[in-house]
Write a protein that binds this DNA or RNA. Sequence first.
DNA 1: TCATTTTGTCATCAA
DNA 2: CATTGATGACAAAAT
Length: 453
Amino acid sequence: MSIMEMQAMEVNTSASEILYNAPPGDPLSTNYSLAPNTPINQNVSLHQASLGGCSQDFSLFSPEVESLPVASSSTLLPLVPSNSTSLNSTFGSTNLAGLFFPSQLNGTANDTSGPELPDPLGGLLDEAMLDEISLMDLAIEEGFNPVQASQLEEEFDSDSGLSLDSSHSPSSLSSSEGSSSSSSSSSSSSASSSASSSFSEEGAVGYSSDSETLDLEEAEGAVGYQPEYSKFCRMSYQDPSQLSCLPYLEHVGHNHTYNMAPSALDSADLPPPSTLKKGSKEKQADFLDKQMSRDEHRARAMKIPFTNDKIINLPVEEFNELLSKYQLSEAQLSLIRDIRRRGKNKMAAQNCRKRKLDTILNLERDVEDLQRDKARLLREKVEFLRSLRQMKQKVQSLYQEVFGRLRDEHGRPYSPSQYALQYAGDGSVLLIPRTMADQQARRQERKPKDRRK
DNA sequence: TCATTTTGTCATCAA
DNA sequence: CATTGATGACAAAAT
């Protein structure tokens, strides 16, 4: 995405107008009153705004550009009869010209570059940019950071936009992107791995007979997945049925009648011991009954002689060992197998769901990161265009100065409508008749456009 | 009671 | 081949 945008930025720069439009209070734009006379309607839609700006720019600087919808060169030429025409042909005919944009970017409301500051490079403005950059882009971000922007500005002033482009955005972008994506992937992978490891660990603890040391947190570990998200993870670790799986509850099991009920006794939200002592045992039994999972009920009904927790969490070897100690009917064995399968799957499902939530969280984080990156790139683009605009104006004024000092053999100044300066490939500057300049301008004008299509 | 969320279960695949 | 974990889909349970 970033690459695309950067490319788009190089090729079509009409979007710059939008960018300038977006932050009306942009403190930076106030620093540059380059186009003070440019009429700006900030309330118009993006397209209108940009087109309006474009047409003005183009009319001033590149009347020869046919593609432009409103080449109002005729109307505006009178304002700048001499330099505007010459500038157009000149810049339009050179590759260098492509570097410079219309100086009046729409959004710079405070800018004051009017018709008297024609821009030879209006042709570069391309509406394609509008598709990629919109006010929305800027609206999304948390607003321009004046400090950052000014820093960027300074860099632009002292440095070339390209250097900044290459040194800044890619590194920061890649780093942030990499961190975010890697964090998501690594975190999820590590989480899952830790999940499995801790799970097996728990299992090991679990079947080490009567370890009463497991606490709730370890129980969480048993499930294996404990990512940092707290708000998101709504899994209830207090679930009695889950606790029943924990080995440390087994020892309560010799509560005769209810082998698997004891889980309830240890859980925090259960009735206090007083009720256990003095409360009716019936009620207690009912309560415990309700706390038991379906499989626990089934196991009790089938008189399975050991806890579901063991059935589920013992490793295969010990599990088979355990089974061999008892004379179990086929139905009992079948139920035990089901209990084991379901119990394991239950935990797997819990892990799976937590993992899914974690993934979603990470993706959300990634989205935020990418949005930040995008906003930053847009900011950088604005600064880039800003400096570009400045350079254009410099070149333009230089052009006018040079052209204005030229004299023919009779000591008379050249007419800007008949002659134009043109950069040669070797770096020299030639004074050529306008007609030639126009032709060359058209030739160069078409090449890039055709190439793009 | 109804809607929504959470949890359990099953089927299936892959390791 | 048996076991186990992951996961989608569905249903029961809980909120």
